[in-house]
Design a binder for these strands. Sequence first.
DNA 1: CCAAAAGTGTTGGTTTTACACCCATGG
DNA 2: CCATGGGTGTAAAACCAACACTTTTGG
Lengths: 229, 229
Amino acid sequence: MGSDNYASEGLMKVAVDAVVFSIIKGDLNILLITRKYPPFKGQCAIPGGFVRKEESLEAAAKRELTEETGVKDIYLKQIGAYGDVNRDPRGRVISIAFLALISPDHDLKATSDALDAKWYPIDELPKLAFDHGAIIKHALQDLRFEIQTTNIAHQILPKRFTLTQLQQLYESVLGKRLDKRNFRRRVLEMGVLKETSETFMEGAHRPAKLYVFREQKYAPLKERLQVFV
Amino acid sequence: MGSDNYASEGLMKVAVDAVVFSIIKGDLNILLITRKYPPFKGQCAIPGGFVRKEESLEAAAKRELTEETGVKDIYLKQIGAYGDVNRDPRGRVISIAFLALISPDHDLKATSDALDAKWYPIDELPKLAFDHGAIIKHALQDLRFEIQTTNIAHQILPKRFTLTQLQQLYESVLGKRLDKRNFRRRVLEMGVLKETSETFMEGAHRPAKLYVFREQKYAPLKERLQVFV
DNA sequence: CCAAAAGTGTTGGTTTTACACCCATGG
DNA sequence: CCATGGGTGTAAAACCAACACTTTTGG
């Protein structure tokens, strides 16, 4: 960083935006709000807002997400900064984007801003405000990488889950079918899961064993789950 | 992004910083400047500075790099935003970091700011200003990934190069030795190189074939060069 | 003819893929 | 006893890691 004229240079608006993914009926969805004021009034956008002086970028993203959608207590991973000169018609705004993968049963409260937050399947996204279309595209690439290299899956699954649920999650995120036997063998050999003594029963068939993640916080995996994209 | 009180919120300083890598005598080096003014006067830092109203983040990083070090015309890859509240003692500054891999024979001009830019081997880095130590650590991880998944190597190599030069580059970046036969087989099978009819001769031994990258611009590779870290 | 780096294949072990049937349960 | 999804093993193919000698040149 230069030492030159600190006072005048570089002042601009800094925002954060969150691309929040979930799986609904087997399809990957994204949480969007509808803008009630210009610019892009009536169009959809990913939730976000301006960073305050005294909060970190991640804290700002969490706060805005809660304010606009009611979603809280989730892990956000930074995916990059978007800073094209004309990305916001109001003036120069730099946005730092984050991604998350959460359970769809977080309550989407009607918010103070009267923005309504809704889930949209990723292959039926509406036209998006700002450069949010590009941000989402990058976020999806990033998510496909994340799910194979970290335990981010634990954010979306119930504490205890079946291997079939886990596999369906991977299939939805990666957008392709996986072989049941190979998937189970690999995920178990990696040692990131722990078998519980409980089972899950639903419908007229054999009950499924329930598993938990060994690491309950977001953490990188030792090896990559070699499923690729 | 919220629609609320656009005028007042989110205003802060935005900077860019560039972690520029090169190989000097087989060792991975980083380009640092010495700060001539407070804060962190006399300490080393990665080159960077504030973003101007009318330039993109990448353009700002390129401009600052040229101003401070003389290095120009290089590809910069964004690696993330650093926004901790107290990362800059002057006040709130968000910094967007970039990385590059360049040839060491870019001239390091004595700059207008009288900052001198010098190369430092990565295992002999001085104490660094701001959070630049952390930024460099992330940049190195990122570089090790980049070199296996993109043709970023073409930035540092001469247009035509030998396979031995390419292999030494990989070894320096990854910090480990690679098997000559396996390396050559894989890199050729990937099809990112094109053999030329020329050879390179130096010293009393068999001349080496010269190769060029098929893609002359930064581009992701179809497959990953499976060397890992 | 010596030194030096360029160039080149094979083998054994490991990993990955593809693939089909039996099990436990509720109705 | 039927329908449903849970659970399991194996063989062939692909891939990866380890390894040493011949070639071409200049001095």
